[in-house]
Design a protein around this nucleic acid. Structure first.
Lengths: 233, 233, 233, 233
DNA sequence: CATGAATGAGACTTCATTCAT
DNA sequence: CATGAATGAAGTCTCATTCAT
């Protein structure tokens, strides 16, 4: 029962201890959300997974919703950093675009649990969550739009499509592929669904088992060629 | 109290009456889901909106989830028909692709309430819903993949990208634009959210107020050019 | 389990049935509050005592607080009617005063359970409750003040004390006697208190076992003589 | 962080230090109870107000209830002393009675915060509290009863009413006036009540804004005249 | 002695679903 | 078929109290 963890140094837990435990709860929440889905996940599930008491969750987060949002913020920051780094690794907008796409899909493949929460579960917390995430996906979209705008300025990419909209389109592609791929994985946990209204088994069309990393090339080709400036245009 | 529905005519309600009442409930559900969100929508809300008793819902649907799914099926059929017709209206795959895109985005603009349910609310019903919808969006994706495959067979479109994946990508673009546009509309009903953990107001990046119909041209250009077969490739 | 009560006539319970069940819940609440105290009383206790499901309580009352308040209103109405009738039964203010006192203390003796809730438990629901009850005891105090004012107008009672304040004083006497007497009764239910901080057993001073009905004479004497107008004053 | 309490002087805290800290906690509790109400007051509120850690409270008191009871005992002692002194300041029972009344109401006016806790909040701690307080108000009632008994023995006051009961009645008057006056004050802290079931605003009848000190004369008159022995009786 | 992070029991309330009429 | 009152399981959050340092 009793765990002599670092923070048990008495009534004077350091800021580090506090941050560490907060992170432990977020990690636990990530696993639980990915495994059971946001709505099926009970606060006590998260607490058990994190090895703390139910009430402890509320010492670090205001509510169950706050856990979700904090998890999102924590993860999106990493994603943004990764993508910014990918973009910075290339010079020409065209290459940056490809680097962006590649980095994102690679991330999905590398961290499917985190990706699942980001791509699927987070969006279930009512529309508000969507609005909130719209806000926070903004940085990611901003990076993308910046690359495109630069390409347009250089005359490499067509200026027919507004950069923010083009960024949205690319993001839509990546998000959909991520979603499809994640849903197609077979090792996802059972949700303990009570009953499926019909005999639905969630079969998917042909795209189910594709290689998400290889798909980066397809996306890169579609996007760069699709946005390429036609000299004769 | 007052009864003015068909079944009050005395004898057995006809199959038509039954179908009509079912449709009435679905219409009510569409409005309630769009207005309050799926999780905030109570069965009794739908019943009131439809002008029937709570229990009556269960004479036509197995559960609240079933209402959502049935609503989805009802609407997606129309969408599929519309898109199939659009595709049929053109000859060449390239034009069919453009017709598809145009038809879908026009639909969003024309029927935002239905679109909102289809694009936003439906996806909140746990991951299961996503899996189910993945299944049912299949027909739509199949139409799209068919067009692309035909284009590839004709040598007009590149065969580098598998048709089903290309279809997914296009769908991702359309879905994201629809989502962005729908969330950017200001006349969506209040959800009576209790409290936003932070001061989040759901601000959005630049793409908020674009013209969804005009965006069809952008999508068409990106997609047709992006998938175009390069003779020198 | 299943009880074929009157209201089981289908989906069309009459207003009478509804009122009857509401009253049944209030009666149950009265017993539970008197027996366990307001804060120790659980909603499920009331439900069990009333023979309904927990959720049923919420079909008739907004909250546990609302049950308490509704109970108060229900009971105070009866009290006010009784006291108004008592006052109406006499002609002269002095006799009305005596009738009032007598009626109230007799009521305490006759309905100790209801009195206990009114005198003791109701006042535990936060200060708000006190403010609320201050409002509703108003009618009772108004009756009393009216009698006194009439006596002052006739020159029978001293005008030195404002009638409303005199009413308050008399009410204080009655309330204190009621409280003392009720607390002195030995057949009150156990509260299942976890632990008494000290070995306190609630011993009381001499007044414990007095006859509350007989006390009416004492109060009547004190009050009438105390408020009597001294001709030589 | 900063430590400036006596016990930080190094060596063992003296008994005085201990008593002083205990008193500091009681003072804090008095303010918190008066400001937020007993049930809304959290142990951590009291700790913060007192400038100690939550756990420290439990080094001085057995429980939250014990804090309340100790606060009561601490304050009632002062009240009893004051009243005893008032009584001692007069010779004749009649004058002692008046002195008692005057002293008590003056106390209410002088120390409304303490009075509020004594008159209002203390009584919210379940019926047990009432039983306990009944016990401890005993001394106060004993003083009063003693005065009355002396008056009866001298033949100045009527012997028709048992002295303990007469004491109760007088106490009821004083308590009710104190309560009314305290509730009528407008500067009492907000309780952050969630919602009032109805639009209740705690309006009060006419007696709200009376002068509590001046009321002493009214009480004195009512009581002395009311208990006066009628020679012709 | 003091600290304050952690604990965990417990209660209110909601709402999808049922079923007697 | 329709009704809608009743059901009751289930989950979030609070907060008094503890105890390792």
């Amino acid at each position: 029962m009793t765990v002599h963890s670092p923070e048990a140094r008495g009534g004077r837990a350091s800021a580090d201890d506090r941050a560490a435990k907060r992170e432990r709860i977020l990690d636990a929440a990530e696993r639980v959300f990915a495994h059971r889905g946001f709505f099926a996940a009970k606060v006590s599930d998260i607490a058990r997974e994190a090895g703390v008491a139910d009430g402890t969750i509320y010492l670090y987060f205001k509510s169950k919703d706050d856990v979700l949002i904090s998890l999102f913020e924590s993860r999106i920051v990493r994603v943004n950093e990764l993508l910014a780094a990918a973009v910075a690794s290339a010079e020409r907008p065209r290459d940056q675009l490809i680097a962006f796409v590649r980095a994102y899909l690679q991330l999905i493949a590398d961290q499917p649990t985190a990706a699942e929460v980001l791509t699927i579960e987070l969006r279930q917390s009512t529309k508000f969550m969507r609005e909130y995430s719209a806000h926070r996906f903004g940085e990611l979209l901003g990076i993308l739009a910046g690359v495109i705008a630069a390409g347009q300025a250089r005359g490499e990419l067509t200026a027919d499509v507004p950069a923010p909209v083009a960024a949205r389109m690319i993001w839509g592609i990546l998000d959909e592929l991520a979603l499809t791929w994640l849903l197609g994985r077979t090792d996802r946990g059972k949700r303990g669904r009570k009953s499926l209204p019909n005999g639905v088994v969630g079969t998917d069309d042909g795209g189910k088992k594709f290689d998400i990393v290889r798909a980066a090339d397809w996306v890169g080709a579609l996007v760069t060629q699709g946005l390429e400036r036609r000299s004769n245009a």
